[in-house]
Design a protein around this nucleic acid. Structure first.
Lengths: 129, 129
DNA sequence: TATCAACCCTCCAATCATGGGAAGGTCAAA
DNA sequence: TTTGACCTTCCCATGATTGGAGGGTTGATA
């Protein structure tokens, strides 16, 4: 199948499929005589794997590793698990950061009247603490 | 004061100060005869404002608006509050997304033995659900 | 057979906020 | 006068994705 069909089947748009190929995340697709990329069901499967991993917040670098482990039938599941646990820790950290921002802003917003007058504890806080 | 001192005083490094000037976030600094940028305490104050807003997750575009509101003594606090509440909603949304990723991954990791064998529910999930 | 739409190709550029480095000018003290 | 710490502009890189320009291919229809 050509790239458009692979895109439809995988949910990864054509532009992104070419990009993934260019950064070595997926192998170079074979080509027709006229230069069109050709994909198999297995290629689509890989694209679905990549898309799912992206949706779980993994970086391209990590996905490269995950795809490698997936292909490697003699992998140790510990390798996968360690990679995943590191990612979970990063997610936890990021969540805490965002929650801290949100909580601070909620507190400030609660004390801001939000009317036509200029007085605003939010700006006061930003301006100097 | 020159840019290095302003950087030290504000906590925003010199590179970033120039960048903020180039994108119009802060006004163009005046210059000495030899071309060095010159800053006042008020400029440093603005930089601190920007830094604090960044630390609360606002985008540059939002910070531009916030700085404008801060400078505008006849602003309505409602303008500030609306901007902030939109940001809070985006933070909440992002937090929920990250939590969903984390929860999915924790669940998968719990079921992965993490030993030397290749069997791995994490990869199975990524591969096809 | 000419045409036309819907594909496909590559290359370049933009996004967002930040950092790195090159190549060169300025300033103050030793 | 030399040294070293400043400062200047310029270009490039990051990470993941999207956009467009400019052009070739395919297959169906007038």
């Amino acid at each position: 199948m050509h790239i458009g069909e692979a895109a439809k089947a995988s949910g990864v748009n054509a532009k992104l499929i070419r990009h993934y190929e260019s950064i070595g995340l997926i192998p170079k697709a074979s080509r027709t005589a006229s230069g069109y990329r050709v994909y198999t069901d297995a290629d689509v499967h890989t694209l679905i794997f990549v898309k799912r991993a992206r949706s779980l917040g993994f970086s391209m670098k990590e996905i490269k590793q995950l795809v490698g482990l997936w292909r490697n039938k003699s992998r140790a599941s510990s390798e996968v698990k360690i990679l995943v646990q590191k990612h979970i820790m990063r997610l936890d950290e990021r969540i805490r950061e965002l929650e801290a921002m949100r909580d601070t802003l909620k507190h400030l917003a609660r004390n801001c009247r939000g009317d036509s007058r200029p007085d605003c504890p939010i700006l006061e806080n930003l301006a100097g603490r």
